[in-house]
Design a protein around this nucleic acid. Sequence first.
DNA 1: TGTCACAATTTTGTATACAAAAAGAAAAGC
DNA 2: GCTTTTCTTTTTGTATACAAAATTGTGACA
Lengths: 221, 221
Amino acid sequence: MLKSATNRIDGQKHSMAKRIEQALLEEIGTGDLGPGQRLDETGLARRFGASRTPVREALSRLAAQGILVQGEKRGVFVAEYSREELSQIFEAMHEIEAACARIASQRLTLLSRSEIEAAQAACVAAAESGDRPQYLRANESFHLAIYRATGNPYIAEIASEFRRRTGPFRAKKFETRDDLLASARSHEELINDIFSEDSATASRSMRSHMTASFLETLKAN
Amino acid sequence: MLKSATNRIDGQKHSMAKRIEQALLEEIGTGDLGPGQRLDETGLARRFGASRTPVREALSRLAAQGILVQGEKRGVFVAEYSREELSQIFEAMHEIEAACARIASQRLTLLSRSEIEAAQAACVAAAESGDRPQYLRANESFHLAIYRATGNPYIAEIASEFRRRTGPFRAKKFETRDDLLASARSHEELINDIFSEDSATASRSMRSHMTASFLETLKAN
DNA sequence: TGTCACAATTTTGTATACAAAAAGAAAAGC
DNA sequence: GCTTTTCTTTTTGTATACAAAATTGTGACA
């Protein structure tokens, strides 16, 4: 086994630990790793061709962000939430997202407008071709673009964190091509309301978007 | 050196890594470890009588929470923010804390009322005796009690996280006994407005509390 | 004096080893 | 049959070793 600190045999720029963290995040985001699934250190180490040390670091960091939970029984698990907990998480997201929409609408620049539009275009394209993984990524970019438009990386980070945490649950509601198209369409309204630069409208619109998203998520879980 | 997984020679219930994390959090919260200060793995390992492994885990988790930053230059540092960044962080806190106050005022129970009152009593006591470290803890408890009163652990966690991040900066504004007394007094208004169970008033009151806190923090840094 | 090269040192990331704890399985008792 | 007890296996937490990278120090040379 290589002992190189930064194993670059496959052209990655990050350390092994960061790469594992990213890879797990991706798999959790797409729902490949579902809620409640157990992650065993040795298995992951073997899978990534690394030792337990970097795996451990990745798991520990993901647990610190609430994406994984450890220690309830034995092992580390993808966080699994009851309906009650899910409802609380969405309430929290509700608040953050509404704040993001409000602030974004107040600080909108030409750049952030075009970023949001570009992300939305990608959403529509992915939805029309029915490419689920691509849509998931595009949808993520769309919301990230709104967060970034606040000009406040700290709020943006919190919002992203909640998005990552709820990823595996939200992922389940995107099954058919129509699900993707419906989601993409619901973005349009939101965009209009944020671009209106009326912060109250923007905030209200995001709240209604989030409520709808929550209800669909509940149905799918 | 002992190889025991859970070194309990000094009657601690947690693993070494968690203990180190807690200890560092405490030192950062009180300002003993100031912003920008470097934390070297080997040194900490020696200090805690452990190896680099658990130190590394603690640092990594604290970094994942944004309390430490790593990799800018060499080493891990207590996060240090410019005025611009501090202002953005406080803007984010502003939103979260206002949401907390609003929700708390809507869901107030007898239990959470009494928890808030008890914490405030401890604040007043510590302020009057001019016990700075004790006041810092009591103040923390006071705000945590408000967060808990939302009944939503996820919002509460985000709010706590911001509180921890800004801890070393806010700590600097508590120097004299009068600082402590002034802070304790400002809690009274806030309590009244939250206990009024009018959510708009509660939210507005928290915003003004946060604005004041921000201005004082800026002055002290 | 400044700057470039290169050697010495420190710091990081990872691998591996191992002991304690926990979980699971098998055996003994009632 | 159902508990309890003891033995085995797995899993965790930590220590230690080591190589690659980064930093610092040092001296040659212009």
